[in-house]
Write a protein that binds this DNA or RNA. Structure first.
Lengths: 217, 217
DNA sequence: GGCGGCCTCGCATAAAGATGCTAACGCAGG
DNA sequence: CCTGCGTTAGCATCTTTATGCGAGGCCGCC
């Protein structure tokens, strides 16, 4: 099996060099590059073509979290392992949503870090147990996973009324909606009336918000 | 620190005895009981009062998955670690939803298992990397905000301007916003001006939509 | 055939919003 | 000290929305 090719983003020079040393001493791993920021990330990733990217979260300029989608944009197959000193919940979930595949706290021992890299490359998602707990809790509390099926009350809007609502949600004025649908502004008003009636609102704003929240459009 | 008290449910006698041996040989752990099925689980848990329950998934009669809520019913503080040979996705998520805090494949080495028990007791959620990957994938695909984490451009709205935007997004009229913030409607207008300027829009609707989409509020 | 819902259009008025111009006050920074 | 920005405020004017009242055409249904 060929070596696992790594790229490392970390603004702290000592850590960067420490890991470089660690990786170079480990058979099966190859560090293609280590950088202090993500400003040239797309080019770096494109030219180096790593298998795994180690990403510090708190980078100056473009944060590690923002960098994840950039990596994934070059190639979704590249696995990103987040490294951080803080187990900030928000950042954790942002990183996960952005496509990170692993999440380790920096107090992780070198041997665990190395194991994590191999795990990651094997298709696993190594994470610190405390991180994993947070993820599980989200699963248990929030009904995030299954398709958030709110009853989506049926307001019985006609197709034309839905056209109008779409226009509203698109941010159009009555005039524009009318032009768009080829009807007069007064007709638009007319439809708006019945829409308000059915949605039980009395302003454009409320209608839009309700339509969006209940995903009528 | 007192020992971590364990109870183990596993129908395979060899495994049961193997783990009993392993635990007994480990300082800091104490096995209070090991059972081949969950038929008397509530009583067993109530009387033994373990800190951690190790639970095989494929048990005859009441499955390990069904058993998790029973354990949690006795005391939600008890941590449940699932052990299984199969990494069946459905079972995994059922177990998580039922309140399991950790999830290991049985090919896990004894030392990792022991580490997992300590992790669990410390508040972590040990899981095999491949299991963790499944969990993360659910996070990435399922959630509604899966659209994309656009860089959330910084429009440099002042705090007051954000107050106003919140009001808009809440569906309030200028009058209401003014009343809410204790300022005159003309001041609201004034802020609205600069908000439109910064957001590059020119209607309430556009501002609201932009604010919502870019989650400025 | 008549009833009701939907789509169309119009006029009118009142309320809300958009925008131009102006201006006072305080506070931070050059 | 002067400048810039945020916050406050007022006035004027035009546009957009909200709503009341009315009306004709089309279609499906009892």
């Amino acid at each position: 099996m060929p070596d696992i090719n790594l790229v490392y983003y970390e603004d702290n020079r000592e850590l960067r060099e420490g890991l470089a040393f660690l990786v170079e001493a480990t058979p099966g791993l190859k560090l293609l590059g280590a950088f202090g920021n993500c400003h040239n990330l797309p080019e770096e990733i494109r030219t180096l073509r790593p298998d795994v990217v180690l990403m510090d979260i708190d980078l100056p300029g473009i944060s590690g979290i923002e960098a994840v989608p950039l990596v994934k944009a070059v190639s979704p197959a590249i696995q990103v392992l987040m490294l951080t000193v803080f187990d900030d919940e928000d950042k954790l979930f942002q990183a996960i949503r952005n496509g990170a595949s692993g999440y380790l706290l920096k107090h992780t021992s070198p041997s665990e870090l190395l194991a994590a890299i191999f795990d990651l490359h094997r298709g696993g998602s190594p994470m610190t147990a405390s991180i994993a707990r947070k993820v599980l809790l989200h699963f248990q509390s929030a009904p995030v996973p299954a398709t958030q099926q709110l009853p989506t009350e049926d307001y019985r809007l006609s197709t034309r009324e839905l056209d109008i609502v779409k226009g509203l949600v698109a941010g159009y004025s009555y005039k524009l909606i009318g032009a768009d649908l080829g009807i007069s502004i007064d007709t638009v008003r007319s439809h708006i009336r019945s829409i308000y009636d059915k949605l039980q609102v009395n302003s454009k704003t409320e209608a839009i918000l309700k339509a969006m929240r209940e995903k009528l459009v």
